[in-house]
Amino acid sequence: MLWNPLKPSVTPIRLQSDREDTLRKPPNFFVLLWSNRKARIGITMLFFFFAMAVFGPLVAPYSLSDTDFATSQPPTLAHWLGTTQSGQDVLTQLLYGARVSLFVGFVAGALVIVIAMFIGFVAGYFRGWVDDLLSLLMNIVLVLPGLPLMILIAAYIPSHGIGEIILVMSITGWAFGGRTLRAQMFTMVQQDYVIAAKFAGEKSLWIIFREIVPNMLSYIIANFFGAVIGAVLAEAGLEFLGLGNPSITSWGTMIYWAQSSDAMLSGQWAWILAPGLCIAGLAASLTFINFGIDAVANPRLQEE
């Protein structure tokens, strides 16, 4: 295993004074997260994809609009991942496509978590008929099969840009997060310090966002990454099915074009494999980070 400066190679014996030290100053959440091996792998991978999105166009070998190459080439030295049926360089497309996939993933993920937080918190905090109503809504959205619903909505939307895809995924994706955040809020509201805040005369919104949210931040972050994973995968799925805008270059549309021009039959495995691996890798990196957050935030899951 690689040497890691943040983690001593020999676990030191925990002395009383050590414990008091950790009590006095809890270690930074991100330092803790980094000390988890899975999270470290995930963060490194995610960093790689971000670098791809930011610097991709700078290091891309050709221009995205360049269509003068021989069409449907398998991987060669000039075109590492081959060319498309319309004569574009696949590697160039892959590097540019990272931007769209990451942008859609994170923006849709953020929207989903905002909706989930609002509905989940209101339901979990106020309980009673408010909770009954919102829980019913969440359950309905949960049992509706996600992808067919997305396809249906996407089919009825007049234009198919990035914004529309984000919208469709936000409408369909919030219920799961809403349900888990509601459950979390449900238990948090019974904590003594929340009752104490009521005695201090705080209003509901203040209690939710200033007293409770800071205490479940790791939980919200984990939910956010979960939502991003869902959005990245759903976006690829929608575009693969041709419900996105095929003229945008993203990993999803790349697979769509590869499929529609029979890339597998012509031996262009790299054209399908590369964007597919990128999507899987991005989802995996976020999942690893989530495992790490779980392990850090929930001591019962701690390994070693």
């Binding site: 904590q191 003594d192 310090y193 009752i195 104490a196 805040a197 005695f199």
Partner: peptide, 12 residues
């Protein structure tokens, strides 16, 4: 006003 039993859980 109320003083709680557990001074660990009653403070944010």
């Amino acid at each position: 006003q109320m003083v709680f039993q557990d001074p660990f859980s009653s403070l944010n």
